[in-house]
Design a binder for these strands. Structure first.
Lengths: 136, 136
DNA sequence: TTTCTTATTTAGAATTAGTCTAAATCCACT
DNA sequence: AGTGGATTTAGACTAATTCTAAATAAGAAA
């Protein structure tokens, strides 16, 4: 089954550095931090700097090619998945997985009604035990 | 209408500093950051230090007397409300308000099913425009 | 009381994640 | 080759938070 990642439009200036970073994110199954990405990018581009990683991540986010996940704890994580989705975090091992709740559209409305905000997006975070940890 | 805050149990060592910090949080309608709390606490206890604010906040959290709200951006905010609830953040002015979604229990189950995690808690964040900003 | 013990507070150093700056480099175009 | 604008680089900087080690407070025992 092919992965339908967002196609890279050529009018976006995808420099060598930006492309390397996009690759790193797309090649990984997990949700790397800026530092993870920097380490992996160093292998391909030995002179790349930390600032470029951050600049590129901002560029890629704005171009809609990656998304950023922020939890209060620790560093932002980056996600190749750019469609709306939710996250589950394991309280035991810290594992982070994506999932999608189909009732999100209704949730958005319900939350808007309750809070009296004009809703723009909802994000839901589940905390619990991942399948591996729930056994132990 | 009285505010039914959690009662302070005497076996918890509520020192002068910790009590001052708890007061600051309970007296405010908003969700102050550690720095806001430090500034307000200084008025009562002129020698209090930043480290004590953080130590006390940790203590109060563990005692279940306050809760911490972390969003990716900027500093943690502290909340006198300790029961499960959700948050709405204004994309325009940054205002943060509490609300409670009664369907949270079902959400917890649905999210657990989808993610295959053993659910422990869910938290939902709405982003949109607050009542004031939606007019302008 | 005096003394011992343990917890707490304090000030400041250290750490972490991320941003900013200014000089160097790159790239497209004349 | 030469110019201009965007990008990259290294390192300084900032903000939030944690750590450290010495000073203080507070309770129990003598």
């Amino acid at each position: 089954m092919a992965k339908p990642f967002k196609e890279v439009r050529t009018e976006e200036k995808l420099t060598r550095q930006r492309e390397a970073i996009l690759r790193v994110i797309r090649e990984r199954e997990d949700h790397p931090t800026a530092n993870d990405i920097f380490q992996a990018a160093l292998v391909r581009l030995p002179t790349i700097s930390y600032a470029t990683v951050y600049n590129s991540l901002r560029f890629l986010k704005e171009a809609g090619l990656v998304s950023e996940i922020k939890f209060g704890d620790s560093a932002s994580r980056y996600d190749r998945e750019t469609c709306r989705h939710d996250h589950a975090i394991c309280n035991h091992c810290g594992k982070l997985v994506d999932f999608d709740l189909p009732e999100a559209a209704e949730l958005l409305k319900a939350a808007g009604r309750k809070s009296r905000f004009k809703p723009e997006s909802v994000h839901l975070t589940l905390r619990g035990l991942c399948p591996e940890c729930r056994k132990a």
